[in-house]
Design a binder for these strands. Structure first.
Lengths: 89, 89, 89, 89
DNA sequence: ACTCCAATACTTTAGC
DNA sequence: GCTAAAGTATTGGAGT
């Protein structure tokens, strides 16, 4: 039992086309949401700046906190080693 | 040596500390949301791949469509651009 | 109603066109050179990696050294302040 | 004068230190060159501006031309892309 | 594991 | 001087 001959001459492709459309739309919807949130982040920093905070330092803090304790320690060890070797202490 | 009547010896700094904490937490919350959405995007592509779609091509389509509002318009006005550049306005 | 006796019917525009061409070519030449150097930088890091160095740390070193002593000290002070406030010491 | 027993307690590290120094210096030298060229590009645009050209438009032209090898080809094959995405290869 | 490319984030510059 | 935009650098992920 197939979906009969001829009502639709390209059933498979039509289906795939619908799938494609759906995929693209879902992705685009999600990326819009992401953009909204990115803008929210910007707003937070802008407001912080207005309250006298140093935005660059704030971003650094967020970045440091994102590393877990172990990774951060390791990264700092390597860095210290290199800095000592170069007399940057 | 104290600023105002001393119930709290560092009222300003304490306030700033709270502000700082709040800023960082808001940013971190937002970035978590962003990560969630990024993962959702990945899921969409993974599912698409399971249905036989070429993920790289899908990403290309999304990228080209994103360009289109701005860059397509820009490309269409390239002649104008040249004319302006030549002072033929 | 044309400008001067007709050896060239659009002398001004032709001149501007030549200028334009020259500008574009000079810029493109310079950007090629820049790309070459960027690739050289990449090569240095790749070689360093092959010798067991941590490339990310190396990049951090270069970035730190680029800041002058004063700026770096200031940046570190702000950062320390924030980190202490957040108990990240 | 050999690095075996005891004349030098850290021969490997000393060697690494020299390597490190060399890497950093090479990178810094290359980045200086890059900066010089970037400044040259700026000069070209500044001079162009002095001759009445619209710098923003010039930058647009350069950017569009840079796109053309890759992206124009990509745009031209967008139908192919869709077909692949639909498994109509 | 490693290379390559796309995506994000940061920096600097131009315009209001 | 500040906001907006471009260009540049770094990071992460996908494919081999």
């Amino acid at each position: 039992m197939n979906e009969s001959i001829g009502h639709n001459s390209e059933p498979v492709e039509a289906f795939a086309k619908e799938q494609l459309r759906s995929i693209i739309e879902r992705v685009e919807r999600l990326e819009e949401e992401k953009k909204t949130i990115s803008d929210d982040v910007k707003d937070v920093y802008t407001e912080a700046k207005g309250n006298g905070f140093d935005v660059k330092a704030l971003r650094t803090i967020v970045r440091l906190r994102k590393m877990n304790a172990g990774d951060r320690a390791e990264a700092e060890t390597i860095l210290d080693t290199y800095m000592h070797a170069l007399g940057m202490v």
